[in-house]
């Protein structure tokens, strides 16, 4: 639990800073607009969390998002009747790509960094080979509703995000979650205690692929069709997860903190925009924050501070067994 606390502190500070610069942020529509903007990355980060906590990487999600948006535009091509079948197809495709990633990583024992790097090249190449270099077709209003529209005042993407968060939290509390964390922590020990490690890791990749599909549906609606829609998203998702205190290499960290990491990243972008820092320096600030946050999280505290912290923890809070890992 201790590891997940800093990210909520940082997020709170950033949100306050945004509110100071832009009071509209405190009103419901302003805040919901922010959540709506953050939703695609948050969902993608949740998917990436499963893969990272199981000790792997998924670099393919960025091109997968691009591929899904381009495929959706080409297949729907402005025909409202095609909306729902295509959405179903996108979800199946996302899961299928995840399944292939997982199977190649676990059965063929290719390092996931290389598996998903290869998948990234294959997807990017294949989609543009198919469309002839530039995305064609158009999305329907029904499709774009998920990214743009809302149920009354609440945007659909916020509702979808809430559903995803509920689902992943329940999933991490169920047997699967414990199995997955154990797998990432020590695959050998997990296997000896009866965990089917390849199966757990493959499911993690499938979940990541599914999250990329959902992210693509939201982004397609929100941002429209382009060949750059998913560019760099894989690194942003990994950044968000790691910002949330989840350890690369697996076995440590909570999914809620990973989602909070995505919100922190989005809050940071919003704040930089508000204070008029140009898009050019945005990535530099992102880099500094990334390194600083991880460095602060991993530095060992001086002995006296650590002691004070443990006494505080034991006197004021009862240890929560479900979060003992995080």
């Amino acid at each position: 639990m201790r590891r997940t606390l800093p990210i909520f502190g940082v997020l709170a500070v950033l949100l306050v800073a945004i509110a100071v610069a832009n009071p509209y942020f405190l009103e419901l529509p302003g805040f919901l607009a922010f959540v709506k903007r953050a939703a695609p990355l948050a969902i993608l980060a949740a998917g990436q969390y499963f893969v990272i906590v199981s000790g792997e990487f998924d670099l393919s999600v960025g091109s997968l998002v691009t591929a899904e948006v381009v495929i959706a535009a080409r297949l729907i091509d402005g025909d409202p009747g095609a909306t729902w079948p295509v959405i179903a197809l996108l979800l199946v495709l996302g899961a299928l790509i995840g399944l292939v990633n997982g199977a190649v990583t676990t059965l063929l024992r290719v390092p996931s960094f290389i598996t998903t790097l290869g998948m990234m090249l294959i997807l990017a190449g294949a989609v543009f080979l198919w469309t002839g270099g530039a995305p064609r077709g158009a999305l329907t209003e029904e499709f774009r509703t998920f990214g743009r529209g809302g149920l009354g005042p609440v945007p659909w993407s916020v509702l979808i995000l809430l559903a995803v968060v509920t689902a992943v939290v329940l999933l991490m509390r169920a047997d699967f979650g414990r199995t997955l964390v154990a797998t990432g922590d020590n695959p050998g020990a997990a296997a000896l205690s009866g965990v089917r490690v390849p199966r757990a890791k493959t499911i993690a990749f499938v979940l990541s692929g599914l999250s990329a599909a959902v992210c693509a549906i939201l982004l397609g609606g929100f941002a429209g069709v382009s060949a750059q829609v998913g560019q760099g998203l894989e690194f942003q998702a990994i950044t968000a997860v790691v910002l949330g205190g989840v350890v690369l290499g697996g076995g440590r960290g909570s999914v809620v903190a990973a989602i909070a990491g995505a919100f922190t990243l989005e809050a940071l972008f919003t704040l930089l925009n508000l204070y008029g820092i140009s898009g050019a320096l945005e990535s530099a600030v992102q880099g500094v924050i990334l390194i600083a946050a991880i460095a602060l999280g991993s530095l060992t505290l001086p002995a006296w501070a650590a002691r004070a912290r443990t006494t505080n923890a034991t006197t004021h809070t009862t240890p929560d067994p479900t979060h003992a890992k995080g």
């Binding site: 990487f57 690194f235 990994i238 950044t239 790691v242 350890v247 690369l248 290499g249 050019a280 320096l281 945005e282 990535s283 530099a284 600030v285 992102q286 880099g287 500094v288 990334l290 390194i291 991880i294 460095a295 991993s298 530095l299």
Partner: peptide, 18 residues
């Protein structure tokens, strides 16, 4: 600073990009 190499060099490359 004990930052994972993936994150450290990704961060540095973002800084250079900026």
């Amino acid at each position: 600073l004990k930052v994972h190499a993936f994150i450290a060099t990704l961060g540095i490359s973002l800084i250079i990009k900026g």
